[in-house]
Design a protein around this nucleic acid. Structure first.
Lengths: 216, 216
DNA sequence: TGCGTGGATTTGTGATCACAAAAGCCCCAT
DNA sequence: ATGGGGCTTTTGTGATCACAAATCCACGCA
């Protein structure tokens, strides 16, 4: 019986490779808001023809990671303040629910792993490394949410992250103060205590924290 | 000055036309769960080549409206019970928020329009017309949520509807009893009274109502 | 100096083709 | 009857090309 029709060492499809590469760069804020992209440019960058580039772009546009003008030009989105508020509210709604579902399944090894990630985040903040900060911050959240065993919800949350990627970078880039991840400690403490209301509040606070920078 | 680069009477892009057609059919449950689709089949059905068909399918797969096997075969999703519960929970989270945001902006004309739609829904139920039921039911909800002025949230809600489309049809298809839309009346009453807690409860009840059929 | 306006260039779209792999299928051996 | 083997057909993928529209840029006029 053949279990894996596509062996792990096989080369992934070209369009998927391009998709993953672009997605990663967008999510961790590698691309600034409003950055224009061309199919031929993407194709030559990843050494593929226009066809896989087009499919990867089409997929990212469908996920809201890229915007497409009426003439078909694609670029990273420049989000209005209202859009940012909406996306933050969506993060709050979905991620609070994910955290709540993960709580009863969170064991000690998970909490310790999150604490380790938190240390890495603190280092990224100390070194003013925005890309590393965003990447490890998302890893912190994803580590918790994976325990919720709710793939559809996690996918939705990641879609929101993706949409905020370029803007997040621009936002955190202008962050002067190097504050440690305060709410992350609250999240870990609530997990330890099995305190669900506290966890929900901590996650909501952490997720909407970026809005306060926007208001200033 | 030219305001609209693409006039209203211009032919839309082929891939977009195919996308919209498929999306509509999927959302209103025209296609049963597990239905297989081929690029060449879609292409010949809409009289386009494989290229636009592929782009439309890629977009729908990205939105979760279609699933893709490891070999690239596409079909409408067959949702597990856990997945259905997740999607219903997402509907509850997002749509309750949308309704809450729409409440202060809901004026009399809107409520009357919703009541008219509700009449159409009752007729669809009476005639056992599952497709019409699903379509007008979604129109009822969308009419309210449009007032929330939250396009990102509405898009998320529609994505969830899309994912549930084929399953909804199968679910409502086996619905014996022709019950009028009870919770819709509660929603309208809460809107009239400006009763936010009542509205949230009514929307949550309406949205998770399908789960009770599943449990039986 | 500012600003349209022309052509040259870039860019997305859709069609077509070659190719490899997956799926279907039929027939035969057990 | 049933399961497997080999062949045929179907199907997705990626490359390439023609075309039209959008964009860009520089030139010349006011």
């Amino acid at each position: 019986m053949i279990l894996s029709p596509r062996p792990a060492d096989a080369a992934p499809a070209a369009h998927d490779r391009v998709y993953r590469a672009l997605r990663g760069r967008i999510m961790q804020g590698d691309l600034p808001p409003g950055e224009g992209l061309t199919l031929r440019g993407i194709g030559s960058e990843y050494e593929v023809s226009m066809t896989p580039a087009r499919e990867a772009v089409r997929r990212l546009v469908a996920e809201g990671a890229l915007t497409m003008s009426s003439s078909g030009r694609v670029s990273t989105p420049e989000l209005s303040n209202e859009r940012i508020e909406e996306l933050a509210a969506l993060r709050a709604l979905i991620e609070v629910e994910l955290a709540s579902r993960a709580l009863p399944r969170a064991h000690m090894a998970l909490i310790e792993r999150m604490q380790t990630i938190n240390t890495t985040i603190a280092e990224a903040v100390a070194h003013r490394d925005a890309a590393s900060y965003i990447r490890t911050n998302l890893e912190f959240h994803r580590t918790l949410y994976l325990r919720a065993q709710a793939p559809a919800m996690l996918a939705m949350a990641e879609t929101v992250w993706l949409q905020m990627g370029p803007t997040m970078r621009a936002l955190y880039g202008r962050l002067r103060k190097t504050e440690p991840p305060h709410f992350h400690r609250l999240i870990i403490a609530a997990l330890r205590a099995g305190d669900e209301p506290g966890l929900r509040l901590a996650v909501r606070s952490d997720v909407t924290q970026g809005l306060r920078m926007l208001a200033s």
